[in-house]
Design a protein around this nucleic acid. Structure first.
Lengths: 355, 355
DNA sequence: ACGCAGATTGCAATCGATTGCATTAAGTTT
DNA sequence: AAACTTAATGCAATCGATTGCAATCTGCGT
């Protein structure tokens, strides 16, 4: 190192350009072929040479340029995770459920040696997703939520893009989804609320989104089985945003002063609903029972602790990643998966209503 | 969509390997040079030829391979965003504050034409971060939180790695940070609680983390100015996890039955604290005032709405990205930035204590 | 001393796009 | 009609690492 009289300090710590294999080869007095093989642990290289080169690499913080490697080998170990948002509402990224999902995906990808490119994309320009693949920046795409773009997703699948979607399984679907059993989830909530003696329910959520629509379907089916209806003034279309949830809930209270239960299509909305109920002096759960969806971490620590339908986020991440990798290897689109879904009853929906 | 008689839907559009520039050149009857120039809009190319090639490219969904481009040009438009976690507690990714930060960074990066590589990394192996840069997978790194690794970060900065950290500004710091004014934040909370007539405070948070330590310093300084102390049994070291927060708060209540205020070093902990207080039949804010930190979106919708110190998350994302880009261009590490910090008083700390 | 096996190492082509320079074709000048 | 512009396009080197094949060297058998 501190050799006096160096003609040109090749790359001190790194004053100039990044060190590359040729530099290391020069330093070691061998060819780049040898360096390459030494670093990859090839048996062809003399163990002593190998060790010498590796030591040198470590000493100079040399790491193989993975752009070059990627070009040469043609393999790409990056997966794009796309969180679509709706321009109108800037909706989506605020939901804690997404957060959990992203964390779970990050873990699953890391475990399998992949990197995660995270991107928010305007839901109306989903086709830019295809460019991620076509340009080789990602090997595959995991899309969180299908939103209102079923047909576009089918088109992308038809083009053979390696794509897996977290969301609902729909009829005429050519792409692969992984999701919870939303219909069952909705039905479980209905049954639970009915069992608690509730009758005048309201529903919060945007049925334009397939997952929400399924939850709604299960919910109303469950209610119908118990002889309870859900007329239009007891529903409200609302994006997954706390403030929107609050507004919608206030309106629902005003339109249905006697309501005794709320089913919100996400925990975030449920929490906002609790706030709105409180503003209107309704006690949860004494006056009104509230049930959410997702079972985000905070649900258990909310005040009151929130009853909710659990989405198995950890399994979800694993299942999404595995499905995508299968697709990348096998070329055969794996079947869509339906994950277990169960109701977690906590305080917010427990006690009987005041008659 | 439901097209009957599809032979094999696997990959009709491009059966086989990905189309590349040479293919397109052949189709257009020109050389790759011409295609390259046509697609990049060079004036050298005949407008008609240019348009013809572009149309062809669109028709075949051809997108320039950005791995090859990246290799040739040597520029990398990917920034790594690192969320360190502590192996012991799996701590960190659960915090909604992080979620907001990631969203904000994603927006700021996208706006400037960069991609975001998101990675969770064991805080004890921060050096793997350097490999991201050395291997050319990312042009720079944004690290969320400095955790207990001030020295390692200094070492990385000394190596000249383009690195910006969200966190506290510390003495003897060679890397660039962007962060809120934590000392001021802590002091504001102290002053507010004192003004509400509270005297028996407790503090929740891990002072091993520089940001928390500064909040604590500001808090105790503020209390001292009001003649109030904070003996050891009124503090609790706790990671940013809801369940840990609950446990710690329960312990604090038992150790200080007469407490009348809580300062939690994050909103997540504050929410967990409210839950614990509720378990012990303490009213918030009547019996005990609670103040959090961060002002996550949910804070305003919590029950009761949570008083908290606002961290300007949007500015933070912008500032972090801008600082990093400056570093990448100018080669000169920009000065660390301190963002505005202010107290948001909501219901959880409002009314006077029962005397 | 010659030939050959085995162990190491180097040469050069390759991955896909870009770009300086050369080349060709068409048009203009004298 | 020769000389010369100008416009449009192609050739070939380049980015940094990998790898099939060839080259070199050592040692050994005879």
């Amino acid at each position: 190192m501190g050799n006096p009289g160096k003609p040109r300090p090749v790359a001190p710590a790194d004053s100039g350009r990044r060190m590359q294999m040729a530099d290391l080869a020069r330093l070691a007095g061998v060819s780049t072929s040898t360096v390459s093989r030494a670093l990859s642990g090839s048996e062809l290289i003399n163990p002593e040479t190998r060790e010498r080169i590796r030591t040198l690499a470590r000493k100079f913080n040399y790491t193989i340029n993975s752009v070059a490697t990627g070009l040469r080998s043609g393999v790409q170990r990056t997966i794009a995770v796309i969180v679509p948002f709706e321009k109108a509402s800037r909706q989506s990224f605020a939901d804690p459920f997404l957060h959990g999902m992203i964390g779970s995906l990050a873990d699953a990808l890391t475990e399998r040696g992949y990197e995660m490119l995270l991107s928010r994309i305007d839901a109306d320009q989903l086709d830019t997703v295809a460019a991620l693949i076509d340009s080789g920046r990602a090997a595959g795409v995991i899309l969180i939520g299908q939103w209102r773009h079923h047909d576009q997703l089918n088109a992308m699948a038809a083009r053979g893009l390696p794509l897996v979607v977290w969301g609902a399984h729909l009829p005429h679907q050519d792409y692969c989804t992984v999701g919870g059993d939303n219909v069952r989830g909705g039905r479980l909530v209905a049954e639970h609320l009915l069992a608690q003696g509730r009758r005048r329910m309201v529903f919060l959520g945007d049925c334009g989104l397939p997952e929400v629509a399924q939850r709604y379907r299960g919910f109303t089916a469950g209610l119908r089985a118990g002889g309870v209806g859900l007329p239009a003034q007891q529903r409200r279309t609302v994006p997954f945003l706390a403030e929107s949830g609050r507004q919608a809930m206030l309106a629902l209270i005003d339109a249905n002063p006697a309501l005794d239960a709320v089913f919100a299509s996400s925990d975030l909305l449920a929490m906002a609903a609790v706030g709105a109920l409180r503003e209107r002096q309704r006690q949860v759960p004494a006056d009104v029972a509230v049930v959410g969806y997702d079972d985000v971490e905070l649900a258990a620590h909310f005040n009151p602790p929130l009853s909710t339908v659990r989405q198995p986020i950890h399994e979800a991440g694993t299942a999404l990643v595995d499905a995508l990798l299968l697709m990348l290897n096998g070329k055969t689109a794996p079947a869509s998966a339906l994950l277990e879904t169960r109701l977690v009853v906590r305080e917010s929906s427990q006690s009987a209503p005041a008659p």
